[in-house]
């Protein structure tokens, strides 16, 4: 089949809830349960489980607060261990939770010559195996700060999430010669409204109630990838 090839377009995908069913807490729980010693695994897992209500409350107030709080729990994790575990995380947790139609959507977009980019508040090493599997061109994700091979519990700048996503999209577009008016953004969450609003072709994927209402108001396409 013939195909229109777009040269200056990109498709930006939020990941958690949009392309996969799980979120960054699942990923952290996976890492927490696989500490170097059994005692550490029990300690970190228990600590994480006890903090879930706090994470939930922080996320309701601000995605930025949530991330700052959440990533502190990574303090002391070894970098090379996290990278090795991220491959296991992908195979055991992420792969079975990729929405069935997500890969088709990306394949269709790639056939149209559109540059494929994952934009996620999750950590870059967690996203890399997924990016490889989905054959996307780039990943914009949060990075942990490491000192002497161990995580400090802080995020390297720029922080990615909520209101900062459109800024990063603009920077990315400028760097790669992308026309945002001719680009797509896909997200499931109202918290990504700013990212959706910055492109010419916003699309709600498996949207939450607030985003669905916005999508209907602005006549954005609504996809169900599940």
């Amino acid at each position: 089949m013939a195909q229109l090839k777009r040269k200056n377009s990109a498709a930006f995908y939020d990941v958690d809830g949009t392309l996969i069913r799980i979120n960054i807490v699942h990923a952290f729980a996976f890492y927490a349960m696989r500490q170097a010693s059994l005692w550490d695994s029990i300690r970190v897992t228990t600590q994480t489980a006890a903090s879930v209500p706090l994470f939930w409350a922080a996320d309701k107030v601000s995605r930025k607060w949530f991330n700052e709080l959440f990533y502190r729990y990574y303090e002391g994790f070894s970098e090379d261990r996290l990278i090795i575990l991220s491959e296991e995380l992908f195979e055991e947790v992420i792969l079975p939770n990729i929405y069935p139609r997500a890969r088709d959507l990306i394949a269709e977009s790639r056939r149209a010559g559109v540059r494929q980019v994952l934009v996620s508040g999750a950590l870059d090493f967690t996203m890399r195996p997924l990016a490889r599997y989905l054959e996307v061109d780039d990943v914009i994700a949060n990075r942990l700060e490491f000192k002497d091979g161990y995580a400090t519990g802080k995020l390297a700048k720029p922080f990615i999430g909520g209101a900062t996503k459109p800024v990063l999209l603009r920077d990315y577009a400028k760097k790669h010669g992308i026309d945002l008016a001719e680009s797509w953004a896909y997200s499931d969450s109202y918290s990504d409204l700013t990212m959706l609003a910055v492109v010419g072709r916003p699309t709600a994927c498996n949207p939450d109630r607030r985003l669905r209402a916005v999508a209907r108001s602005y006549d954005w396409p609504v996809l169900d990838l599940s």
Binding site: L4, R6, A11, R101, D104, L105, W184, R201, L223
Partner: peptide, 17 residues
């Protein structure tokens, strides 16, 4: 016309929606 024909969102909505 071709822009709409190969819009990935519309293709997805046609194929699976």
């Amino acid at each position: 016309q071709d822009e709409f024909a190969y819009n990935p969102s519309y293709v997805e909505m046609y194929r699976r929606g």
